[in-house]
């Protein structure tokens, strides 16, 4: 378990980091996936740029009616943020469900999102939140939606030399309830299936539904058919059940040692129903 020889730089400024990345270095943002891969020699980057050393990427703040989270905010930073707990509890709940304490202390939101593991927890919540992602390189800056960022298993729209610098999530009004529910794979803690639900109620009717699903297929997605099915309904048990039944429809589900595709689809339905129910019950 010894990595190949590599160069390591911990730059002081983002510009310096972007410059190194433009010249072929690879970003390190916690290393919860990259370092094990390097030790197994599945990955052999020649030059790592440690983004966690950058103070200017580690923040969680409110601005312009939105929440801005720097890429190197750790899962623990997010889990324990009073601001997020109050204004975006879905994200704190999701961060708290990641891996174990050690992973949450070292892993970062930017690293996790950019790695795009198909079973990672954040993508479900970020899909449900319709988060925006700021991508920066030495020469450019652009903002993408979750639908555009997550391309396939371990594949994002990030180009070489480009890093995810910030995640932007909305602040919901008080008529919104959220929930993230997962079945954790007992060895890795990754989601066998994880479902994030975000619902809003107006005058006894459900006015707005967002459902993000992770773990089921190669990329996290929004279950739009289920969302539509629930909007305008009262949110009875039957409403929830028939909406949840749609979350896995037409999805090419993955199988592994821990769960077959059929079981994953079944779990997605069960977890969607439960997450929706919990989200509704949390509306103030």
């Amino acid at each position: 378990m010894f990595a190949q020889k590599f160069e390591y730089t911990a730059p002081k400024t983002l510009d310096e980091a972007l410059h190194l990345l433009a010249n072929g270095a690879k970003p390190l943002a916690g290393g919860m996936s990259l370092i094990p891969m390097m030790k197994l020699r599945l990955a052999a980057p020649e030059h790592l740029v440690d983004l966690r050393a950058l103070k200017d990427l580690n923040y969680i703040r409110e601005a312009g009616g939105q929440l801005h989270i720097g890429a190197t905010a750790s899962h623990y930073d997010i889990e324990s943020s009073a601001l997020l707990r109050q204004k975006c509890p879905l994200l704190t709940e999701t961060a708290a469900a990641i891996g174990d304490v050690q992973v949450r202390n070292l892993g970062t939101i930017g690293g996790s999102v950019a790695h795009a593991d198909p079973a990672a927890d954040y993508p479900a919540a970020l899909q449900a939140l319709e988060a925006k992602f700021v991508l920066r390189s030495e020469k450019s800056e652009r903002t993408l939606s979750a639908a555009d960022l997550f391309v396939d298993a371990l594949t994002t729209a990030l180009q070489p030399g480009e890093i995810l610098s910030e995640v932007i999530v909305p602040i919901d009004d008080t008529r919104t309830g959220t929930s993230y529910l997962k079945m954790a794979q007992p060895a890795s803690g990754f989601a066998i299936v994880g479902v994030a639900a975000r619902v809003r109620q107006n005058a006894g009717k459900i006015s707005f539904v967002r459902i993000g699903v992770t773990g089921l297929s190669n990329r996290a997605y929004r279950a739009t058919a289920a969302e539509k099915a629930l909007e305008g309904k009262t949110g009875s048990a039957a409403d929830i059940q028939s909406a949840a039944a749609l979350v896995a429809r037409g999805v090419d589900a993955n199988s592994d040692l821990h769960a077959s595709a059929d079981y994953r689809k079944h779990l997605a339905v069960v977890h969607a129903a439960r997450a929706l129910k919990t989200a509704l019950s949390r509306i103030a």
């Binding site: 174990d100 794979q185 007992p186 060895a187 890795s188 990754f190 040692l257 821990h258």
Partner: peptide, 29 residues
């Protein structure tokens, strides 16, 4: 009883070859 199994596939590859797939009992469980 609940989690652990060393799984060899038909070719004799140990497919639970590290702790991401071999589920040890954890304190929180």
């Amino acid at each position: 009883a609940l989690w652990e199994q060393a799984v060899y596939d038909d070719d004799g590859q140990l497919t639970t070859g590290e702790l991401m797939d071999y589920a040890l009992p954890r304190a929180h469980l």
